[in-house]
Simulated scan of single mutants.
Amino acid sequence: MKQAAIDRIWYGGEPAPLWMRMLVPLYRMLRALVQFAWRSGLRKPVRLSVPVIIVGNITAGGTGKTPLVLALIEALHARGWKPGVVSRGYGGSATAPTLLDDNPDPAIVGDEPSLIRRRSGVPVAIGRQRPDAARLLPGAGVDVILADDGLQNPSLARDIEICVIDGQRRFGNGKLLPAGPLRESTARLQAVDFVVCNGGTPQQGEISMVLRGDQAQRLDADAASRKLSDFSGSTVHAIAAIGNPQRFFDSLRAHRIEVIEHAFGDHHGLVKEDLDFGDDLPILMTEKDAVKCIDFADSRCWKVPVSAQLPASFFDQIDRKLRN
């Protein structure tokens, strides 16, 4: 089933077909079995020598975790910490724990870790087994670890849990996978330390996060920058291989840009042929997608970086929890 059809069920009010509804009890049972292994002590989380912050969500698809991780890196640096990031490296081919170099290949280590490493410069480790990957970071000078995703993975002991929700789509129809977008019940929010609301109107107790991006940077050697407003009134191709492509398309239209949409599945491995539209119109893409196009991008290609804006008091609370 295509993602557009799934979105109509999860977020558009269309009823879930019978086969989806029948699979929900199976999903619930499998999750209960996993949780039992950890809660009973049959399996125990790995405790590292430095504190761990989990940044995750309870829905399938993108909610804005990676921009929040980047904002946390900047805020922790400003408060005297030396953060590093651990990720599964989803979409990459690497299986062994790997510490990323300065020019990571997203086909090997995944697009999100590549983006985080290139943009922040902090140590980033990836691995199918998160504890094994995370063990590489203290030796690289890291004194606090940010786990990009992993709220449902209890293998790594954590000191702070942050759940990011999409402020516009929220929890959709409120059903568990596959009939709805929920990885686990919304009751899970009661156990996390912070709930961050990306866009929309935050509910009581939620921390507001806004994504800002008003610049475009060309991907070729020129690396020229332009204001997004410079594209106003013109037509562009827009590429998004993220969990919620519509958010990116809507952000461009907010700058009065005429958008020809090209949505791909999350983490889709973009190739040169994906950019062949038979014309010379500009191509705007997310920063996460841009890291996959560096080797073959031409002068038509522009990335649109975004930055997460949150209250300074949120970062101060994180700092205090770490120091306590």
Rank of each mutant, 00 (worst) to 15 (best):
L310P: 02
L219Y: 04
R88K: 02
R118N: 15
V304Q: 09
R300L: 08
F231L: 15
D250T: 15
G269P: 15
V236S: 08
R169K: 10
T66P: 00
A216E: 04
V195K: 05
K272P: 12
R300Y: 05
L252P: 01
V164Q: 15
A240L: 01
I145D: 01
Q3Y: 08
K321S: 05
D102A: 12
M1L: 07
R135I: 02
S234G: 14
G41A: 03
I126G: 08
P106C: 02
E273R: 14
P51V: 04
G243D: 05
Q168T: 15
W302L: 10
Q215P: 06
F194K: 00
S225H: 14
G12W: 08
G84D: 07
R169S: 07
V210C: 07
V50K: 00
L42D: 03
T186V: 15
A140S: 07
R169W: 12
Q217L: 09
G172H: 01
S114R: 12
G233R: 11
I162G: 03
V69P: 07
E206H: 04
L26Y: 13
T201G: 07
D143G: 00
G243T: 09
S93F: 13
G89W: 08
A78S: 13
V24H: 07
V291G: 05
R226M: 09
D132N: 12
P45F: 02
P97C: 06
I58A: 06
L284R: 01
F264C: 10
D148G: 05
P178C: 14
P311Y: 07
V124A: 12
N198E: 05
R79Y: 07
T201E: 11
R128T: 14
V85S: 04
L310C: 03
I53Q: 00
D276T: 12
G92W: 10
V24R: 09
F248E: 03
D132L: 11
R47V: 06
S229P: 11
L270N: 06
A238D: 01
F249Y: 06
V86A: 03
D220C: 03
L100V: 05
R183C: 00
R21F: 01
A297P: 01
C301L: 13
D193Y: 00
T95Y: 13
D220G: 03
G89D: 04
Q152W: 05
F171Q: 04
D214Q: 11
S120N: 10
W302I: 06
K2R: 14
L284D: 02
D220Q: 05
P154F: 00
I165C: 03
G62P: 04
V196I: 02
H255F: 14
R21D: 04
Y27A: 06
G89P: 02
